[in-house]
Amino acid sequence: MAYKDIKFAVSLYSYQDNYYFKRLDFEGAIAAAAGSGAEGIEVLGDTMIPEWPYISDEFADRFVGLQYRYGVKGVCFEHWSDRAMWKNKQLTDDEMFERGVMYIKAAKKLGIPMVKLLHEEHIGPKAIAGYKLTDYGIIERLLPVAADLGVTLALEVHTHDGVGADYQQKYIELAERTNLPFLGLAPDFSTFSYCMSTADIVDYTSRGAQKEILEFFRSKQRGAYFANVPFVYEAVSAEIEKMRPNDVTKQAIQFSMHMIGRKPPFDKLFKDLKDLASKLVYVHAKFYDLDENDCPDDMDYPRIFKALKEGGYKGYVASEFEGNRRMNMAGWVDEIEYVRRHQAYMRSLL
């Protein structure tokens, strides 16, 4: 019997190239998401609201009408932590708090019950020096504001350590301690990427990398994952050196090792996902390219969904297609078709 507690959404980010090149406007992107079978949409004010950072009554009214027309609901609104606002000056913590409030109020105005908040630890305990994002102290102040407006703050976890990392637990504890259940974690599936995606191979090959070397590297990463052993670059480095990799090829391998090589064992990542599933507030189904069965070709979706279902996740899983960013330098990729296939594939996993 199909699992009933997961619903599907599409982040309109997935259609960014259609929007950038004026093939689809905001309404067109909503129509595409609805057409893929999704019930929810994730809205990016910074990307698709022309009057941003303001939202007029007319826009809000129109959004109500669009949801009605296309039979979808706005389920999540995206927040960014733009602190480096000027060349020599950054926003203070108070000003960052104010910007957080701005995003929460924008979501409220549109009737969207959740803000996906870019928090300090989204890619690890110390992201990048000089780029302090919205941190614990600011989130502690934003939580009562969000609760008052009935908006949930979802902290998206992009990091290789996943939702089980020690440094993410303080946010769950904050919601529990204050008895304000309007804050929680939202895993992004990039955490579960176990090899270089073919989208990366397309991207790097278009910039001069050697396809056969990257395909060899990818096959070794996949072999390690399915044998349930850690991938160690040293085990293949001699063979790769013999193939005489050029600089772009080396850069691609280095990037992949940076993204994937630091992960804890996958058994732990999946166990953490299952253990925390019932507390998660949102899930971002990131994908770059699909294999012949429509499974994202660098992530083990069956195992991800098994963990979510066994752990009792209740909520939305949103498609976020990011292959456009990697593949469109080499030629147009069909975002609409990718999302349609991805949604159908995910539904088959319930």
Binding site: Y19, Y20, M85, W86, K87, K89
Partner: peptide
Amino acid sequence: LQDDFPTDFYWPFG
């Protein structure tokens, strides 16, 4: 380019 330029004039995507 000035460090006090207002932050609410956007260059919209696309």
